[in-house]
Amino acid sequence: MASVSMTVNGKAVSGEVEGRTLLVEFLREGLELTGTHVGCDTSQCGACVVHVNGESVKACSVLAVAVDGADIRTIEGMAAPDGTLSVLQQAFQDHHGLQCGFCTPGMVMSAADLLQKNADPSEQEVREWLEGNICRCTGYHNIVKAILAAAATLRGEKIAAE
């Protein structure tokens, strides 16, 4: 067993893990952050996407010990402390970008990474970015719409702030 410490959603946490403990296991079982889901065992589905030091990764394919000291953000850390949804989360609700909700945390985390890298993605760029996120319910139509809408809103906010 090894001790790990990291910042998760802005909060310092630590715990004892085995070498083989996956980040997703540490989050779900160790920290009871069950919003990060496991939908496959071959790293394709993307239900487990979280941010490690600001980059989206698949928490099912990362060892917990390997992110010792890192800054982690999960779906639980996306809304404001008072519960107000982020622009991206709100766009998913407004545009019906989710049905069963199981892939949703990974979709949101993946899309958030896209929008911090590309503030004005085209529809095609959004679709290509989602290569690592599988949804069985929505046909992606409304997910893509939600991400494009969130991007537009965020650009508007940025312009307004300047």
């Binding site: 790293s43 993307g46 996407v49 490690v52 980059e55 989206s56 990764v57 698949k58 394919s61 990362v62 993946s110 990474d113 896209l114 970015w129 290569e131 690592g132 996120n133």
Partner: peptide, 9 residues
């Protein structure tokens, strides 16, 4: 290669 998350690791 792979997908964005694979490319990040």
């Amino acid at each position: 290669i792979g997908d964005p998350q694979v490319r990040n690791r």
